[in-house]
Nucleic acid binder design. Structure first.
Lengths: 330, 330
DNA sequence: CCAGGTTGCGCAAGTATTTGCGCTGGCTTG
DNA sequence: CAAGCCAGCGCAAATACTTGCGCAACCTGG
């Protein structure tokens, strides 16, 4: 009922045969004719076959939860750059308020015939979030790598930074500075990286489970959580992201105290510009460069059908001591 | 020569007719059969037609130069959110070092049959950069909106913040604080928004053209440029981005001076977290929320074939006074 | 347990696309 | 300037995909 060839052929004034040849990249058509057929195709709104524009685009989806926290754009740059070097193009997908869900993005990516997907900080990290769309990827055998702590074994290879060690370092640092009443500001309860940090916190016998706050990952969330902790008299706060830490610093000041003189605050991520903040933030750095590269290497291996262990690659974080932590006043 | 239907049909053990029906979403096929046909398709590596996965995705490309400067992720969130509300999905495209060029992204987007494109801070803003790919978009009559000051009339509608007014505000603010020796740190010489700011600077009769530095948009660029300015004895620096301003602050300190006591620094953009820096940055805010919404409105109008003036919509910036500027010491 | 309805599917006829072959007209060569 | 060559294209045959129709299997209500 469509009669594409016929319609296009009439429009250009050539035979159906010629249009067919153009569409299939067959020889025997002059460049000029080829051009005009292609133009007519576009004008009439038909999809030209993928192959016609250079070689098939090697697309990879990169799914991120947000862009507010600078760690995610930074990660996107690392992954995008590494993919580009391997000849892949990345499609960046970000959840937006009231907008497109992760499942929608997965649909979209499948539709666009991507060669693979990298997820960072997605729903897979939250135990209570829907996970059906990951199974969809699995069924399709689409190469996929998860960054940072997935819920359970979905069977995808993972690249994570070691949250347990990270929290341990942060707490150790505060202890070494003489702090004893230490609080934690974490993400949602079902968020796996937060849980792992919590495990590290509770591993210490002197830890007080009452000084753990769960909140959402925003400056305001950090502010609210830290306000409660300060009220409970903590002198050190370990946060699950730099943004939370900035919120915590604001909360401490709002309470009439100073950072780091009265309360020490440690962030997590070491996102950009944390050395320009007031005070420069002591934080635990995720090695995003190495992680991004590793994720891309894994993904490319999967795409090329190499067998890759569905393990979790743990990356060692690094404590970056700046000026938001100090020895406890005696 | 391919005989897709036949091959798939044999694999699944049904007739070609059934496969055809599945491929075209026709009724009269049980869910189970449909599933197995699709699976076989995937296994055999055939593309399933776009329509099969829900209704045709309404895609819009969003092309950004980088993600380091937080203004771009922020803009991406605004535009992405606004598009989502209108039922569009945004594909984020970012240039990466040694990676995909703007022209490549345009090719990609055309190939993916996007409904429209939003460019922010792209090559169109630089007089000496290649512009052919914009013409390609124009020829295809693809809806397109440019954000912030394009080189010349490429015929696309534009949404910009008023750079002249912005620079004027910044300079006026410094003058009001008693500063007379004021320097400027701008982007590349052929960068149109920087030129417009330069125009505002030179409009004042007492302006010294020797105190204008061109550099690339990075912290290090700002640092280097500001170092030269400080050596020349300026007491106030107006920067073309917040990142440049942070670099400038570092340069001032490296020179043994203090911000704002010895030298006042003004940024531009008011990107996120500039109120957490040391000192909190005085800056000129781009109304990215309004601009993003306007850009999306224009684009959607274009997509719906409404006629839209190919004008430049100028948005008024806003001076945000924090603590990186102070009265000149007498 | 049977009649009638419904759904899923294959047959084969109908429609669309691809391709072998040969015509044409322009360019090269002697 | 004519003969020969060949790229570019259309014709029509071959191939590939779509669809109207009817059969069969399975439910459903008597």
């Amino acid at each position: 009922m469509t009669r594409r060839l016929a319609e296009v052929a009439k429009k250009v004034g050539v035979s159906e045969a010629t249009v067919s040849r153009v569409l299939n990249g067959k020889p025997g058509v002059s460049e000029a004719t080829r051009e005009s057929v292609l133009t007519a195709l576009d004008v009439l709104g038909y999809e030209r076959p993928t192959q016609l524009r250079g070689d098939r685009a090697r697309l990879v989806g990169l799914v991120l939860p947000e862009l507010q926290n600078p760690i995610f754009p930074a990660f996107a740059e690392v992954v995008g750059g590494a993919l580009a070097q391997q000849g892949f193009t990345s499609l960046l997908c970000t959840r937006t308020v009231g907008g497109v869900s992760e499942a929608d993005y997965v649909d979209l990516l499948l539709q666009q015939q991507v060669s693979g997907v990298v997820f960072a900080g997605g729903f897979y990290a939250q135990a209570d979030a829907p996970h059906e769309h990951y199974q969809l990827i699995q069924e399709r055998k689409l190469p996929c790598v998860l960054v940072n702590a997935a819920v359970d074994h979905l069977g995808f290879p993972q690249v994570s930074s070691d949250d347990f060690v990270a929290a341990d370092m942060a707490i150790g640092h505060l202890r070494a500075l003489g702090h004893e009443k230490i609080g934690m500001v974490l993400g949602p309860r079902d968020h796996i990286p937060s849980r792992r940090k919590l495990d590290a916190f509770l591993a210490a016998p002197e830890a007080d489970p009452g000084l753990v706050e769960h909140t959402m990952f925003s400056l305001e969330g950090g502010h609210a959580a830290a306000t409660r902790l300060v009220k409970n008299g903590v002198t050190g706060i370990v946060c699950a992201s730099d943004i939370l830490a900035l919120g915590a610093i604001r909360a401490v000041r709002r309470a009439g105290l100073a950072v780091p003189e009265d309360v020490s605050v440690i962030g997590y991520d070491d996102s950009a510009m944390m050395n320009c903040t007031d005070p420069p933030l002591t934080t635990v750095r995720q090695p995003i460069d190495a992680m991004g590269r590793a994720a891309v290497d894994l993904l490319v291996a999967l795409i090329e059908r190499a067998s890759v262990p569905a393990d979790e690659l743990l990356f060692e974080p690094e404590l970056v001591v700046r000026a938001s932590t100090a020895r406890l006043k005696t």
